[in-house]
Amino acid sequence: MKISVNGRSTEVPDGIVMSALLASLELTGQRLAVEVNEELVARSRFEEHRLASGDRVEIIHAVGGG
């Protein structure tokens, strides 16, 4: 299925869970926060949060800023 990850269309296995998506992007264990369709997904729910076709995923982190 196709989802959007940080604005880029991405092909992922059907019904992939968030933790698996992050592992496939080599982001496991990094300090980040995630929202799907503009709703926050808590870190504690990464193992269970199943993605659906067309989901818009944003993976964010802290950067320098004033």
């Binding site: 990850v5 940080n6 982001l27 990094q30 964010i60 950067v63 320098g64």
Partner: peptide, 20 residues
Amino acid sequence: VTVAVRRTNIGQTPNEPSIL
């Protein structure tokens, strides 16, 4: 100290140190 919140760079410089 202030920080901004932005998209993670996926697939680019994976071992780049982070501000935190």
